[in-house]
Design a protein around this nucleic acid. Sequence first.
DNA 1: AAACATGATGGAATCGTTTCCATGAGCATG
DNA 2: CATGCTCATGGAAACGATTCCATCATGTTT
Lengths: 332, 332
Amino acid sequence: MSMRRTTIKDVAEAAGVGVATVSRVLSGGSASPETRERVLTVATQLDYRPSALGRNLRQRRSGGIGLLVPDVTDSFYGRLADGVLACARSAGEPVILGATGDDPEREAEMVGMLLEQGVGRMIAIPSGSGEIWEPTLRTGLTTVFAHRVPAGRGDVPAVLADDRAGVRTAVDYLTGLGHRRIAYLGGPGQEQRVAAFREALGPLVDEELLVFARGSRDSAYAAAAGLLQRRPDLTAVLAGGNLLGEAAVLAARELDLRVPRDLSLVMFDDVPWAELCAPPLTVIAQPAQDIGYRAAELVLRGGGRRPRGVLLPTELVVRGSCAPRGTSRSPR
Amino acid sequence: MSMRRTTIKDVAEAAGVGVATVSRVLSGGSASPETRERVLTVATQLDYRPSALGRNLRQRRSGGIGLLVPDVTDSFYGRLADGVLACARSAGEPVILGATGDDPEREAEMVGMLLEQGVGRMIAIPSGSGEIWEPTLRTGLTTVFAHRVPAGRGDVPAVLADDRAGVRTAVDYLTGLGHRRIAYLGGPGQEQRVAAFREALGPLVDEELLVFARGSRDSAYAAAAGLLQRRPDLTAVLAGGNLLGEAAVLAARELDLRVPRDLSLVMFDDVPWAELCAPPLTVIAQPAQDIGYRAAELVLRGGGRRPRGVLLPTELVVRGSCAPRGTSRSPR
DNA sequence: AAACATGATGGAATCGTTTCCATGAGCATG
DNA sequence: CATGCTCATGGAAACGATTCCATCATGTTT
C-alpha cells in the first residue's frame, strides 16, 4: 500500500550511475550530455521529486520564508501576505505563516518556531521593540521588516510605505478644508505616523486628540467612541488603519454624527469597502501587495548585503468623507 | 561569528550521557530520575532546541500543516486561515500557506510543493474536481477539505458550512417578501449551493438567472453588471460570497438601481463592512474561523480514521438590503 | 612517447535527529 | 549459585539529500 517515496538512490540505480551524478545533473552541475539526458529521462519516468527534508538538513537551512503578520484577518495584511506568496511562488519557495496578534510574546514564540524549523529567511511586521529583535537578528535569520520597523531601529532592511508623506498629505488636505482640531486614531507600532502627524500639524497639535487602540476590533471601537464622546469639538479624524477607520465610522454613527457634515474622516489604507461605505471614504492608499512582494524579493535575493530599505509611495484618494469645516459640532 | 547551533550531541556531552538518552528524555521516554533531571537542566542551560530538520528527515514526515486557499485577500479565507493558525499554534505546528487562485493547475503545483517539503497533513479549499485529487489522496497526505469538497466526491473528510440550509433560509426569506424572480450570483466550485438554490426555488427557478464568475473582483463585477443589465425584471439577488456581494452592490449602484427599493440583496458570508454599507447588507453568516479551526483539529488528531465530515450552522442576519417586492423594476 | 591538464564519475562523509539493539547492572526466582 | 527478567543506557544505523575527494579516461603539450 504505502509505497516508499522514490529517492535519489532509486534514480541512480535505474540510470546506472552514482547518486552524486544524479544530484549534480539535477542541480545543474557538470555532466556529460548523454548521462544528463539519461538521468533526466529516468527521473521524469520515475516521477522523482527531491525531498526538501534531505536537502535542507545537509545544507543546514530550510529554503522557506517565514512570514509574521499581526492578523491575517485584517485586509491590509491579507494583501501584504498575498504579495509575499506571489513572489515566493515564482521562486518556488514555501511560506510559513504565523499570526502574532501584535503581541511581542507571541511574536517571540513564533520566531522560535521558525528557528526550530530551520527557516533561514523571514519577513516580519514587528510588534516588539528594538531590543527584543536584537538577538534574533544575530541568529543568522535573514530578516526583512515590512510595513514598519521595530521601535528605535532605523538601520534594518525594511519595505515601508511612505507614511510621512501620506500623513502630511492628509493633514494638509484637512487643514486646507479649514479643520483645526484634528484627531489621530492609531494602532500599535505607529510611532512613525504619529511623529509625522505632530510635525505636519505643528502648533495645532493637541495631545488629547492622539488616541491609541490595541490590535483588536473591540479595542479600536472603544478608542474611537471614547475619543468622539470626550471631545465633541473635534471636526476631523485621521484613522491609522482600516480597522480604526471602520471603528470611527461605527462610533460616529452610534453618536449620531453625520460624516462628513459633522465630522470629516480620512482613513489609512484603501480597502474595497471604502467605496461601498456611506459616505464613500477618503483614504490614503498604500500598496500593500507591493510591500509584500518587494519584501519577499529583498529577503530572497538578499544574500548580498543591501540593508537599505525601500520606500513605496502612498496616494490620497479623495472620496466623500471630508467636507469643509462648517458650523462647529454642537455639544450633546 | 556564526556560532554553530547547539545540537543534541552537545547536550549529551555536557550532561555526560549518550545522545540516545537525551533524545529519550526530551521526547518523554524512560530514563532514571536523576539523569532526566541532569539532561533537562543542561538542555535549558545551553538553550537547546531540537532541529525539526533532523527529526523530520528521520521520521520521514514533516510535522507541519499545508493550507491551500484560493485567495488570502478574500476576508472569508482570511478568517478561515486565522482559525487554522490558532489551532496549529496551540499544537505547536507550523503552517505552510499557499494561494491557488481557484486554478486547478496552480493547485496541483502547490500540492507538489507540499509533498516536496515532506508535509504530511493538509487542509485545502479545493478548486479542481474529484479526479484531480484522486492521486493526491493516495499519497499518504492526510487531507481535510474545508468550505467545499472536490466536485463529485462526497466521501472525503471535510468541514463545511451548512450551505443547503443557508440557501434555503435566504430563499424562503426572499420569497416570503414576495420575490419571484431571484438570481443566483455564484463563484467557482459552488455546485452545492446551486443545487440547494434550485431545490429551494422549485418551479420558480430560471436558468438564465444563474450566473457565475471566476474568482477575481473584475470577473465578479462583470458577471453582476451583465446579469442586472440583461434581466431588468429580476427583483432579488443572492450573492454567493462577499466578493460577489460587493460586485452586486457596485453594479446596482452603477445602473442606478436602489437597494433595497429596486433590488433586494442577500449575500453569503458576513463581513465587517456589511454593516457599514449603504444600506447595511442582509447576509448569511458562516463561521469561517470555526471552519478553519475544526479542519485543523481534524487533520491533526486525524490519524484515527474519521472521514465523516463536520457541518457547521449558518445564520441569516437580517439588515437593510431586502424589501418586499414593490412595483416591478421599470426597464431602462 | 612521456608527462600533464582536463573533465566526468562514483564512493563516502556529512547534516541532526530517532530508534533499534546489545550490554550490563540489579534483583527475584528456581 | 545459576538462570532469567527488567530496566537504564549508549553505540550505531537509518532517513535523503549535497559535496568533497580520489579515480580514471581522454586529449594536449613538450
